[in-house]
Design a protein around this nucleic acid. Structure first.
Length: 557
RNA sequence: GCGCCUGUAGCUCAGUUGGAUAGAGCAACGGCCUUCUAAGCCGUAGGUCAGAGGUUCGAACCCUCUCAGGCGUGCCA
């Protein structure tokens, strides 16, 4: 039980005690809030129960607080002192010993420190990237990849049973366009004069694909029908591109548990059956020769076409079938990571989910905003139309996986992100990645020195934690203690950036500690051991936090 | 037109889901290496939380309106 829980239980008991002896009379116990005050002077924790009870008790908040404080005095060995402050807050000061005990928890938990069981094994699926197999991943996909991967591992750490999935849009018009693009480049390379349409894929990778076909198959596709040629290049190109996407993701440290093909939904008749189910439920109706889904029932601006008047299904039809299939596969919770430009699709998909008989919240949607690429503060020009976009691979090759992931996760996914390539490469405190990793490496270096000097960091014989009594010792301990709740809230809110902020905060606390406090002190072996134990716990926390984001914790820098 | 998102220090952004005196990093200025990694630390300065109303003990956060920017609003994917 963590400190907040203990305090909550303690307050509850106190209030009930007050009711019992008549010092409080309403008999109504509000939800007990425990928060961390912004200012140190306000204690380690504070509660606003007295203010919440004011109305029911018909007493001034401060008077109620006094009554509760009197009842609480000496009731818990966690509490050093408590006071009434401000408009009626009860401030709690926790005993130093209680703080220091946390170190033993951290040591004991090791790699598990910070993890929780709130997920209770519920099955959750995170679907992300899902870029069309019509070109290499660009930097925007990179942010989606980092975010989806981090959210998945956060949820895993929070006790969920997580699957990561990539949805392959291998059906529909864009595959024909891909096939045509390849075929035309192929003909061009073989000397035919061609007109390359504007809506075809302009990137240089199409020529690479055409070249590959020439080496493997020669010029035989010059003599087949347009239809056959397009079909071949669509399949061949799609496969090559998807393989490249997978490689780029692996270099970025992202691996999927499942790759799900849109085409498979058609092949297995799942699109038809999904449409049929919705029709039977009366959620799909016919008008102007097309079939429409009543998304307006769920807050959408207008109803949406599922099957066009020419009989061809829309992308939305696939989406209905896909999400129906996800739930049919037994997921309790389904999470989609989308580019923010798709935000208009949220009501529509939420409608589908409800139409399937699920709660709207069973589908979680994370919208990831644009990335603005900079070099030394100057925007890097990008244009998707001309195919001159910066790829994920280029960025990872230039700045490295760790820096790229950290930068992608530095901001709330909802807000736009400036990604400065030069800053990401810089090896100084300006660069938050190095700042954080350096903290870990520095601790490891201290242990190295300790070993060299024969101060073996073996804690099995017990450590005298009482010696950790300086303000800096305790400040570091308190920072470490925040990790579990930070991790949990980052997970359930889909907010990996809380971890990057926590890391910078913790690294700062450590660097500050390091500058003020000596760890290895030959004439004080017991204190040396205690401080080494503290840093051992700091290293565990730093490493666990970095790991959950998919970033390495170097031993040496 | 309608809908969604954003607006916090010169810049880039946090702000524990309504708490006490709004925080960090850059940039600026001034200090700290004979010491376990200076890829580091300490200090100074910087604010009408876009604006105006409202809700209550209490608002950057919730409601209404206004302004500014971005995105969406296909029988495209």
């Amino acid at each position: 039980m963590d400190m907040k829980e203990q305090l909550r239980a303690c307050i509850l008991k106190g209030i009930e005690g007050c009711f019992a002896d008549g010092t409080l009379t309403s008999g109504v116990v509000p939800a007990i809030n425990i928060e961390k005050p912004a200012h140190q002077e306000h204690g380690d924790f504070a509660s606003n129960v007295a203010m919440q009870m004011a109305k029911a008790e018909r007493k001034a908040p401060r008077a109620i607080a006094e009554i509760i404080v009197n009842k609480l005095a000496g009731s818990s060995d966690l509490i050093k002192s408590l006071e009434v402050a401000g408009p009626g807050f009860i401030n709690f000061f926790v005993k130093d010993d209680a703080w220091r005990m946390i170190l033993q928890d951290i040591d004991q938990a090791g790699e598990q420190y910070g993890k929780s069981k709130v997920g209770a094994g519920r099955k959750v699926q995170v679907e992300f990237v899902s870029a069309n197999p019509t070109g290499p991943l660009h930097i925007g996909h990179g942010r989606g990849a980092a975010t989806g991967d981090a959210v998945a591992s956060l949820l895993l750490a929070a006790g969920f049973d997580v699957q990561k999935e990539y949805y392959i849009n291998d059906a529909g018009n864009q595959m024909n366009t891909l096939g045509l693009s390849g075929l035309l480049r192929y003909k061009e390379l073989l000397g035919e004069k061609i007109e390359f349409p504007e809506n075809c894929y302009q990137g240089g990778y199409m020529k690479d694909i055409a070249r590959e076909v020439i080496t493997k198959h020669g010029d035989r596709f010059l003599n087949v029908s347009q239809e056959e040629g397009v079909a071949f290049f669509a399949k061949f190109g799609g496969d090559v591109i998807l393989k490249g996407i997978d490689e780029d993701l692996q270099d970025f440290g992202v691996r999927f548990d499942n790759w799900f093909s849109e085409q498979s939904l058609f092949d297995q008749g799942k699109v038809d059956s999904a449409v049929k189910e919705m029709q039977e439920k009366g959620l799909i109706y016919e008008q102007d020769g097309a079939l429409w889904f009543k998304t307006t029932d769920y807050g959408d601006d207008k109803d949406r076409v599922v099957v066009r008047s020419n009989g061809v299904t829309t992308y939305f039809a696939s989406d209905i079938a896909y999400h129906r299939d996800k739930f049919a596969r037994g997921f309790d919770w389904v999470i989609d990571v989308w580019g923010a430009d798709h935000h208009g699709y949220v009501p529509r998909l939420k409608g589908v989910v409800q139409g399937l008989g699920r709660k709207a919240d069973d589908l979680g949607i994370i919208l990831v905003q644009l990335v603005a690429l900079l070099r030394d503060g100057v925007p890097v020009a990008m244009s998707t139309r001309s195919g001159e976009f910066v790829t994920l691979k280029e960025v990872v090759d230039e700045v490295g996986r760790d820096a790229a992931r950290f930068f992608f996760l530095m901001r709330r996914s909802d807000s736009q992100l400036d990604f400065d390539l030069e800053l990401a490469k810089r090896q100084s405190a300006d660069n938050p990645v190095y700042y954080v990793q350096y903290a870990h490496a520095r601790i490891k270096s201290i242990f190295e020195t300790a070993r060299e000097r024969g101060v073996a960091p073996d804690f099995s014989g017990g450590v005298n934690l009482q010696l950790l009594e300086s303000a800096d010792d305790l400040a570091l301990v308190k920072k470490l203690s925040l990790f579990p709740e930070t991790l949990e809230s980052a997970a359930v809110n889909f907010e990996p950036h809380r971890i990057t902020y926590f890391l910078q905060d913790l690294a700062g606390e450590f660097h500050s500690f390091y500058n003020k406090s000596r760890v290895i002190i030959p004439e004080e072996p017991e204190l040396t051991r205690a401080r080494l134990f503290l840093l051992h716990c700091a290293a565990i926390t730093l490493k666990n936090a970095l790991t959950v984001l998919g970033i390495s914790a170097p031993e040496r820098m």
